[in-house]
Structures are given as C-alpha cells and as structure tokens.
Amino acid sequence: MFTLANPKHFMAASGKILPWLAAVTAVLFAAGLTLALSVPPDYQQGDAVRIMFLHVPAAWVAMMAYGLMALAAAAGLILRQPLADVAVKTAAPLGAVFTALGLITGSLWGRPMWGAFWVWDGRLTSFLLLLFLYLGVMALGNAIEDETRAARAAGILAIVGAVNLPIIHFSVTWWTTLHQGASILKKGGPAIAPVFLWPLAVMALAYTMLFVTLWIVRIRTTILERKAAVLRITGRA
C-alpha cells in the first residue's frame, strides 16, 4: 500500500493493470446493457424502468466517488502523500460528471413517472448540493496557484462536505416527499424483483469499474504532466 504511494511504483503497477481494468469495464458494460435491454418491461412503468439501470448506478458511484475523494483527502492531510493530493484533484471532476449523469437520467425518468423533470424533494436537492460540492472542490483546487496548497485546501473542503453523504442517504427517510425510499439496502431484503436486481448489480459493477479506470488514467496523466512540466522548466525537453 505504502510502496504504491510512491509515484514511480504507482506508474509501474497501474500501467500493468490498466488494460485489464479497461477490458473488464467494457465486458461488464456489454453484459449489463444486454441484460438491461432484455428484461421484461415493468408492469407499471413499462419500458421506462430501463432508465433505472443507468440512473441508480450513476447515483451510487457519484456518492462512492465523494467518499473515496474525502478518504484520499484525509490521507493527503494526515500522511502528507503527494499521490493522495493528486487523487483528490482528479476525483472531483469525475465525481461531478457521475453526479450530473445521475441528475440528468433521474430527471428523464421523473418526467414520465412523476410528470415533472424536477421536484424540490429531499433526495433531489441534496444530490444537487453534491454537484455543487464537487464543483466547489474543483474551483478551490484551481484557484490556488501552489499545487500542494491547492490540493490540501480542496481536501479540507472535501472532508467538510462529506457531511452531505449521510444526508443524501437518509433524505428519503427524513423527507418522504416523492423520491422512493431505500429499495436495495433495507431490512427484510431488496424490495425489487430478482429479474431487475441482476442487471442492476452488473451495471453497478460496470459503473464502479469505469470510475476506477478513469480515475487511474487521470492520476497517471497528472503525474506525467508534472514530469513534463519539470523537464520543460529544467530545459531537458
């Protein structure tokens, strides 16, 4: 774990596993999308239920990405690990995209089901705030010139903002307005038919692997960019 935090070791190890990660992601998406399109239409929602397979995993990964980013930020602050700083900075835009994807697919699903693209419901509002938190971390990281300071400042904001995660998770219990309550992780097992559960699980895995793959690519790119910048400054390029 700690030897991996050395950028040199990280580059070597991640370079080896990256093609495999990308391949697994592609296979999972192919399998997940095939399954998602082959399930029978829902007895109430019809074919619109298929939006679930794009929406729910995006929302999950958006929250998981924030949790990982906050953990990386804590590691960066406590262990003073430059690699953790890079991980925070690169996770924010990815998380923002998954959050936006969750919001967009959600509103496209809400239109036929609820009759509105958007409602000011607890889950939707707290999820919109998650997007703003991601954008705030990105803005703060870009506004400070010194790389290390920028990453640490963004890290503190990321950690403080993590209070929003439990609010999002429990929002459907606290404000019972329109978004449905917990359907998968709940007492007495999932309240969703097994035919729908399997494609959902595969898609969740596919989204997670996509995030991990893109995260590693971005971390590698940032390390390479910094190397290039150093070479340029020292005149060796």
Partner: peptide, 15 residues
C-alpha cells in the same frame, strides 16, 4: 486567493 470574494460563497453555500 485574490478574488476570494467570488469563490467563497460558491464553496460555502452548499454547506
């Protein structure tokens, strides 16, 4: 940050 007055509300409002 020199233009901190612009970025501050943005990062604080969600909280």
């Amino acid at each position: 940050i020199r233009r901190g007055g612009l970025i501050l509300p943005f990062i604080v409002l969600p909280l």
